[in-house]
């Protein structure tokens, strides 16, 4: 399992790599160490991540920009994995409202502006 995110906030960003286990085993997921992890974007920036803990890799310099396309590449024991995603433009939120009710109970409503 390769899990990571690039945001428009300043880095460093982290990528976490673990292995899956059989269903009947305890919830202990082995970390993947010593993998080559690279994040690049469509503007030509390439950042090779450093391992900072068991299964955890950190970026050096890259900073996310909305609208750019990001590619994550991982090479582990000869197998390579890649993923690609476009960072969407931020959405301005003007208000949030919540309606909730308990099944058979009172209905409550609250709005934040």
């Amino acid at each position: 399992m390769i899990e990571g995110a690039v945001t428009d906030q300043l880095g460093p960003y982290r990528v976490k790599i673990t292995r899956k286990v059989n269903f009947d085993e305890p919830n202990v997921f082995p970390a993947v160490n010593g993998a080559t992890v690279v994040i690049s974007d469509n503007t030509g920036i390439v950042d090779t991540l450093n391992q900072v803990g068991p299964g955890i890799y950190e970026t050096n310099s890259i900073v996310g920009v909305a609208g750019n396309t990001y590619t994550l590449s991982v090479v582990d024991q000869g197998n390579s994995y890649t993923g690609q995603s476009v960072m969407p433009q931020p959405v301005a939120i003007d208000s949030i409202s919540i309606d909730y009710f308990l099944f058979g109970g009172r209905i409550q409503q609250s709005t934040l502006k």
Binding site: M1, K20, V21, N22, F23, N27
Partner: peptide, 16 residues
């Protein structure tokens, strides 16, 4: 189809 394994993401255990 039963889950053949599980993995950890988003701070929780997910079935594979």
């Amino acid at each position: 189809t039963f889950p053949s394994g599980k993995y950890y993401a988003d701070n929780r255990v997910l079935f594979y």
